[in-house]
């Protein structure tokens, strides 16, 4: 551990409301590593729901608020690949021809998804966590394809004591969430998760782990409805296990 860093948290709106424990786990891990964590209290949402529905001007208004809130942050940690992608990849598109373009792209360079922050920015692959059992990892599409996050979570999980990692065939297939897609086309969305369940079940894993709370909402919601014994966990929760 070299220098302690000041890390600002962005806790996406639905994590704040539905699964705060994911945020809390992230705080615990970062603090355990000796960093100073702060939480800009004016924060709300990155604007992705509007953006993905095609309401770009509306999304930009929410993005404006995000920019104000995090203008002074050195380093921002986000427990979601999807929200990180929104900020790093899609904000620049929203602000393409605006005077804030530069500010936006600079901020994008300081915002990191939790596992890439740990591995690529902080150089940590072993956080000293322990969890017994077998796990399989689900790559959230935004983290994987917009940000190229693939190795970081696996490195971290390989170093969790007692945990063995088994890849499933469909690790990189979409879970079926996709925001409003899950509501507008529930039959397709659910069929996709059904495929995920089949693939995860084949690995005989105890846990399905992911870096994206929205995927977990979808996967967890379906798995529990199907009475699957697989427990769905966010990677921050796993890394927080002592």
């Amino acid at each position: 551990m070299e220098t302690a860093l000041k890390i600002s948290l962005f806790i996406p709106c639905y994590v704040d409301q539905l699964s705060p424990h994911i945020g809390i786990a992230m705080v615990n891990v970062l603090e355990r590593l000796g960093h100073e964590v702060n939480y800009p209290e004016g924060q709300t949402c990155c604007g992705q729901p509007a953006f993905n529905s095609g309401y770009f001007p509306e999304a930009k208004k929410v993005a404006d608020h995000f920019l104000d809130t995090f203008a002074d942050a050195d380093l921002v940690a986000v427990p979601s690949g999807s929200c990180t992608a929104m900020i790093r990849k899609f904000y620049p598109e929203l602000y393409q021809d605006s005077p804030q373009a530069k500010e936006v792209s600079e901020l994008g360079g300081r915002v990191f998804e939790f596992t890439e922050l740990l591995v690529n920015q902080l150089g940590v692959t072993d956080v000293g966590a322990k969890l017994n059992g077998t796990a399989t990892y689900h790559d959230g599409c935004h983290g994987l394809r917009e940000l190229g996050i693939q190795d970081a979570p696996r490195k971290l999980l390989e170093n969790v004591q007692g945990l063995s990692l088994v890849e499933m065939d469909e690790a990189q297939s979409c879970c079926g969430f996709g925001g409003t897609f899950a509501i507008k086309f529930p039959q397709i969305s659910t069929a996709m998760t059904q495929v995920k369940l089949g693939s995860a079940t084949q690995t005989e894993a105890d846990y399905l782990i992911s870096g994206d709370p929205s995927c977990l909402m979808q996967i967890g919601g379906y798995f529990s409805r199907q009475k699957s014994s697989i427990q769905c966990l966010h990677i921050a929760e796993v890394l927080d296990q002592q």
């Binding site: 409301q17 705060p20 945020g23 939480y39 659910t190 967890g220």
Partner: peptide, 21 residues
């Protein structure tokens, strides 16, 4: 309804992250 027909949904947490902080 469209969600819950095939998927469970967690109840809102008793304490939000904001309140926790």
């Amino acid at each position: 309804y469209a969600w819950k027909k095939t998927r469970d949904l967690d109840d809102p947490a008793k304490q939000s992250f904001k309140q926790y902080w």
